Computed example of a mutant assay.
Amino acid sequence: MRTLELTPAEIPDAAKAADTIKRLLSNMVSITQGLSELRNYYGTGHGKAHTDKGLQTRHAKLAVGAASTLAVFLTDTHRIR
């Protein structure tokens, strides 16, 4: 996000809707942190058995949807710049 200049600190306060844009950019970081935490708790990494369950299909869809939306946004931003 720093390379793409998408950190909240890089948005000028004078920009239209600066507070909203900064909040959205901060939330993008929260998405990646949340997905990482879900993987740590429920994923098969870190030596966990594949039989561990806990999340439902709807949780997986939320994780995939959030990750893919973020990936598309970052890729589009990279291409534009």
Rank of each mutant, 00 (worst) to 15 (best):
L70P: 04
R39T: 08
T3Q: 09
P8Y: 07
T51D: 04
A9V: 14
D13N: 06
L62K: 06
N40R: 07
S36K: 15
G54D: 08
S26C: 08
A15C: 04
H59D: 15
V29L: 11
D76V: 13
S26E: 09
G34N: 09
H59A: 13
M1V: 09
V29I: 12
A67C: 00
T51Y: 14
T7D: 13
P8W: 08
E5L: 04
T44I: 15
Y41R: 15
E10A: 12
K16T: 04
A71V: 05
T51E: 11
A60V: 11
L38F: 04
G43Y: 11
P8H: 13
A49Q: 10
S68C: 02
Y41V: 14
R23K: 12
T32C: 10
L70K: 01
V29N: 13
Q56V: 03
R58T: 12
L35T: 07
R79D: 00
L4E: 00
K16I: 10
K61T: 06
L25G: 14
N40C: 10
I21F: 08
L62W: 10
L35W: 06
L62P: 02
A18Y: 09
L38T: 01
H46Y: 15
K53L: 07
I80Q: 07
K48V: 03
G45V: 15
I80T: 11
G43K: 05
H59G: 11
A9S: 14
L62V: 09
A17Y: 15
A49R: 08
G43F: 04
A18F: 09
A14D: 11
S26L: 04
L38N: 09
A9P: 01
I31V: 15
G45T: 13
T3M: 12
P8L: 10
A14E: 09
A67S: 04
A49H: 12
E10T: 03
A15H: 04
K61F: 03
A71M: 12
K22N: 05
V72S: 01
G65M: 04
A71D: 03
T7F: 06
T77W: 03
K48I: 01
M28G: 13
R58C: 06
S30Q: 09
L6N: 02
V29H: 07
L25I: 13
L70C: 00
V72R: 06
T44Q: 10
R2K: 15
T32D: 15
D13H: 00
A18T: 12
S30A: 12
I11Q: 08
D52V: 15
